[in-house]
Design a protein around this nucleic acid. Structure first.
Lengths: 252, 252
DNA sequence: CCTCCGGATTTGTGATCACAAAAATGCATT
DNA sequence: AATGCATTTTTGTGATCACAAATCCGGAGG
């Protein structure tokens, strides 16, 4: 039973961790609107826990940049301006390029096989228009690659950057993924791994990230407004749980 | 009055922030021994606050990698192995090189002046053997440079990496800083800024970090894994606590 | 209709309590 | 003296309470 989530620490059953995972999952799944205010008591109510674990989970996500806390001490989902996306793009190019280069030098046969399998599953999902598993497998492909670099601290930082870009990667669908060069880049990466060609692996990853994030950046204007859905102009009266975007809770 | 500390959010007077700053400062000042256990109640007692703000501050530092939490749910100061230092070295080279390159393209005349001033103060402090202000000014030099890149998210990540390497940078003193190429590198960086030469600025920063962190990495086996460690020896567990370094509190 | 101001409500912060897991301690047995 | 086991102490976790700052809301005055 391969769980899609990294499941980094299966032994941690603390409520704090559960809240953290729930929020993180909801964030990457785009279940929070950019700019939306998130109160401690709302999350606590939605998940049926007290404030204590919610505070710690939310604060950690703030420290990781997944949420941001304003001087008015209110927590919101960050708005992405074009400049911010470009900044994340450059950081990701630098670090994921570094990881890909290391991976090319160190990847075992089994690891390469896993990466190739993820690449195949991306093509399969994409061919049948399943954008959900598409995104999931893209993530799997990348992190299987970076894990092969054998640098856990680097992996953590990269995960943090993905968490920040996560909500906005939905914007790549369905238009961007129709681009012809998508699969070709991954093929080249796998070839680079087999050839132990670090420079090539690095270059291909950098190109991949540059293309995708530049595309996203062009969709974000300076105000942080993004094309799809969410007019958001209208004021919300009370943040009754029905008014805001659903943060579907799993009962406890 | 330029306060040496970044003072990112002067308005935040919460106890949590104060505890966070105290711990961070104590950590970079080397007032915690690597591997030392840090309990919530100890910190709370030392600073005269309740557990609540301590928990949140410590957890944030764990999220940032400044401390690490073991599966036994005990918080400790991380031990740096040689591999970890090398990993941090490569990450810092990538990100700080990126920042330096951007800074070369964007730095204003005033910003360059500030960077040059920090460089002069490094030389002054070093010539009179004042390693405390030496380190402080080195930090100032680097972050003035990176701030000129105008990329706040990048700056945050770099700060996180410095926080992790911080306790071990004491190892550079007093031997390493006698190395002849130290001042020359900074001169070249400033020249690169004036010439708007991004590639050169990047290369010089990378060289600087490579030299310093490689030096630390070679010491890490002894410093990180505690002195004894006969390669063939058996258990020899008990990392003699070195008498619990003082975490000097400021009363409240 | 807009602005400003008052109180009522919401919301983050910090302290305290109760509890369970983990570590430390003491004691008896071999 | 060394080892196994039960007890006590320490320590992290989560819930709850009290409080102050921020926000919201409605009405008076322009």
């Amino acid at each position: 039973m391969p769980t899609p989530a990294p499941a980094k620490d299966p032994a941690d059953t603390s409520l704090r961790k559960q809240v953290y995972d729930s929020l993180r999952e909801a964030l990457t799944a785009g279940r929070f609107a950019p700019g939306q205010k998130v109160t401690f008591r709302y999350v606590a109510g939605a998940l049926g826990v007290s404030l204590t674990p919610v505070r710690e989970a939310l604060r950690r996500l703030v420290a990781e940049g997944a949420f941001e806390m304003h001087p008015n001490r209110s927590v919101r989902v960050p708005l992405m301006t074009r400049n911010k996306v470009m900044e994340l793009r450059d950081m990701r190019m630098a670090l994921e390029g570094l990881a890909a280069g290391k991976a090319a030098l160190l990847a075992t046969r089994d690891q390469i096989a896993g990466i190739r399998r993820a690449a195949r599953e991306i093509i399969a999902a994409r061919s049948r228009g399943d954008s959900i598993t598409d995104r999931q497998k893209v993530r799997e492909f990348h992190f299987a690659l970076y894990a092969a670099a054998g640098q856990p601290m680097l992996l953590r930082v990269i995960e943090g950057l993905w968490l920040q870009t996560g909500p906005y990667m939905n914007l790549l669908y369905p238009d961007f993924i129709s681009s012809p060069r998508g699969p070709a880049g991954r093929v080249k990466i796998i070839e680079a791994l087999q050839a132990r060609d670090a420079a090539s692996a690095r270059r291909e990853i950098e190109n991949d990230i540059r293309r995708a994030l530049s595309y996203v950046a062009d969709l974000a204007d300076e105000a942080g407004n993004i094309a799809p859905a969410r007019p958001t102009a209208g004021k919300r009266r009370r943040n009754t749980p029905t008014g805001t975007t659903a943060f579907e809770l799993q009962a406890h």
